[in-house]
Simulated assay, not measured.
Amino acid sequence: MEGSGLNSIGDSVYVYVGNYQEEVRIRIKKLKEGAEGRMEQDGNKWISLTMEQWESLCLVKEEVSKQIELVTGRDAVTKRAWRLSPNRFVSVDRIRSTFINAFVTLINIRIYFMGGTDLPDNPTRYGITLKPEQ
């Protein structure tokens, strides 16, 4: 895959543009430093978007930002999702973390199994979770 350089959006998460099977793709990946000091992929923490899906994400950016502002600081579990393609969604999730015993706001860009529903209820392992500042 040929492409642009890595652009950091914080916390070892990078965005880059490349070609895959003669199609332009935008990839968002979590990378870690490998044994030889080279950056390598951190498990399944990535998502690849077509230009159409990327443009859909850009169109809902303001709504996502408003939802982040709306839920941040609340002590309640909430979720709102936007469809990027038939099986890819971006969502703002306000969850209770048992690890830190507090509510956190996260942005998920993820592929879903779509059973008989239009709602993103069955996430696959393919996707990435971002913090609001990313």
Rank of each mutant, 00 (worst) to 15 (best):
V24M: 10
W54L: 07
N122R: 10
V15F: 02
W46S: 10
V15A: 05
T117M: 03
D11M: 07
L49S: 01
I100F: 06
N122S: 10
N19R: 11
G3N: 05
F113A: 09
N19L: 13
R96F: 15
Q41F: 07
E62K: 15
E69S: 13
W82S: 04
E23A: 08
S8F: 03
N101C: 09
R38H: 10
G3S: 10
P132Y: 06
R96E: 07
Q41C: 06
I107C: 05
E22Y: 13
Q134S: 08
W46N: 02
E40C: 06
Q41R: 10
K30H: 15
E52V: 02
I111L: 12
W54G: 01
G127W: 01
R80I: 08
I109P: 00
N122P: 03
G34S: 11
Q21K: 15
F99H: 13
M114G: 04
R83E: 13
L106F: 03
F103L: 04
K32C: 10
G43C: 10
I9P: 04
Y14D: 08
R110N: 11
G18F: 06
G34M: 07
Q134D: 08
N19Y: 10
L6G: 08
R80Y: 03
F99I: 12
R80K: 15
T50Y: 07
V60I: 13
E22M: 12
Y20A: 11
N108G: 09
E23D: 08
G18P: 00
L31T: 04
E2S: 13
G127F: 00
Y126K: 15
V17K: 12
F99D: 08
L31D: 01
E69P: 00
V24E: 10
A35L: 14
M114S: 01
G18W: 07
